[in-house]
Design a protein around this nucleic acid. Structure first.
Lengths: 181, 181
DNA sequence: CTGCACATGTAAATAGTTACATGATTTC
DNA sequence: GAAATCATGTAACTATTTACATGTGCAG
């Protein structure tokens, strides 16, 4: 992302800053416990992009501290809030959806390797889905608190939806495993 | 991808060639009607990678034709088939799963813009899911034929699983929309 | 005789991850 | 005083998409 266009990364940062001011580090750790399952971000994107948002007047840096340590806390500006709202109201171009699932790809091609391999792939996928669902469930209490403090269940609903979808995935795998044995 | 390591793209191509010989163009159009929903590939990957597979002795080119036109048809070698089997049998590193869903991200942050915007996002998502499911269903007959010719339902099962998962996603959206009004 | 699907490829741009580099503060 | 976590940042690398370039053959 060069020049003065905004991309999805910009809006993720603005979205997090819209709730309350935070540092890049805060955004990363919060994203890892919420949006990670449908939108990952890395430090390599966060820190340069925060600077850019300041240059564009969409965010501002306020010297903050935590304990004795200095940290760069950013807050969203009125202009930034307006830009976020515009993005939210704008219909998303194309589907805005992509997925890459290497295990499912292996399952898709598994006939080339025989039933035993296929079964091992399915078992591994089942374990992955169970671990993922457990992780999502572990997030629920924290997200519930955030939802309560913001008097809105939206973020909790998204988490619950994630659990439901991955549960459907798990059910599908279990069905295949049952048919196999 | 440089040198002589294989990446997932290599194995997608080998996987398609394992069923029967085809051209790069064939692979692309077939992938667009099967793996696209969990693993996209583009010509920019396919053509250079096919050449590389030949250099590595995993695939070979056979001059073919369709009508009067020449086309580069590739087939998998014994070495290629062995490499594919090794990949299939190898446990997948990490989760091998990633997803990016811009509309879900908008929903996640939609509190910043109010109920009307949130409702419009949900409606747009519902339309997307319905269109996606319709597309997947439209693929079923063709995939059924392939499954019959290969005497294996695996590819059809993967497609059905995709439909189920996206149906669960759609159900989740419908629930939110009902709560909203 | 035109437009569409077939067909192959490269170059440039874009997006994103990972590795590196550094250092402070807290907790055990 | 060692380890973990907090904290910020850049550079290099990897992966993938998109745009460009070119041409054939068939169907209406």
């Amino acid at each position: 992302m060069s020049d003065n266009e905004l991309d999805t990364t910009s809006f993720v940062l603005l979205g997090f800053l819209a709730a309350h001011p935070r540092s890049g580090y805060d955004i990363k750790s919060h994203a890892d416990h919420s949006t990670r399952f449908f939108w990952q971000i890395s430090y390599g994107q966060i820190y340069p992009e925060l600077k850019r948002l300041v240059e564009l007047g969409l965010a501002a840096q306020q010297p903050g501290s935590r304990g004795g340590r200095t940290r760069n806390v950013y807050h969203i500006t009125a202009k930034g809030r307006a830009a976020l709202k515009r993005w939210l109201a704008l219909p998303t171009t194309s589907t805005g959806f992509e997925m890459r699932d290497e295990m499912l790809l292996k399952l898709f091609f598994s006939d080339a390797a025989g039933t035993a391999v296929k079964q091992r792939i399915l078992t591994q996928m089942q374990l992955r889905q169970e671990a993922l669902i457990a992780e999502l469930r572990a997030m629920e209490p924290r997200v519930k608190d955030i939802a309560a403090s913001q008097a809105s269940a939206t973020k909790l609903d998204v988490l619950k939806g994630g659990i439901e979808i991955h549960q459907a995935y798990l059910d599908f795998l279990k069905g295949l495993l049952k048919n196999l044995t």
